[in-house]
């Protein structure tokens, strides 16, 4: 095998999503990274989030920024 590991289709799709996101935001990948880090830091203060599986996207028509933030465990439900 010339290439090992993850199927290249999935890699292509992940790279493309990131590219399209920065293109649509009109910003550099570094700025996007900074924004993602800021969002993760502030959300982590209030929730247990799965930092590695967060997905951001921008939709056109109507323009809309979406963040999918998986929770690592919904535990410790408050009982009053």
């Amino acid at each position: 095998m010339l290439f090992n590991g993850k199927k290249s289709c999935g890699i292509a799709k992940d790279r493309l999503k990131q590219l399209v996101l920065t293109d649509r935001m009109g910003c550099s990948p570094e700025i996007l990274d900074m924004m993602q880090r800021d969002m993760v830091t502030s959300m982590s203060r209030y929730m247990n989030i799965d930092k590695d599986s967060i997905e951001f996207s921008i939709r056109r028509n109507p323009g809309r920024f979406e963040a999918s933030v998986p929770l690592s465990a919904i535990s410790g439900r408050h009982t009053f």
Binding site: K7, S8, C9, G10, A12, K13, L16, K17, V20, R59, R60, N61
Partner: peptide, 18 residues
Amino acid sequence: MVRNGDMMSVEDVEEILA
């Protein structure tokens, strides 16, 4: 190649470009 997971499918492209 789509079958082998080495090319994005029509659905993948549609999903991204909407």
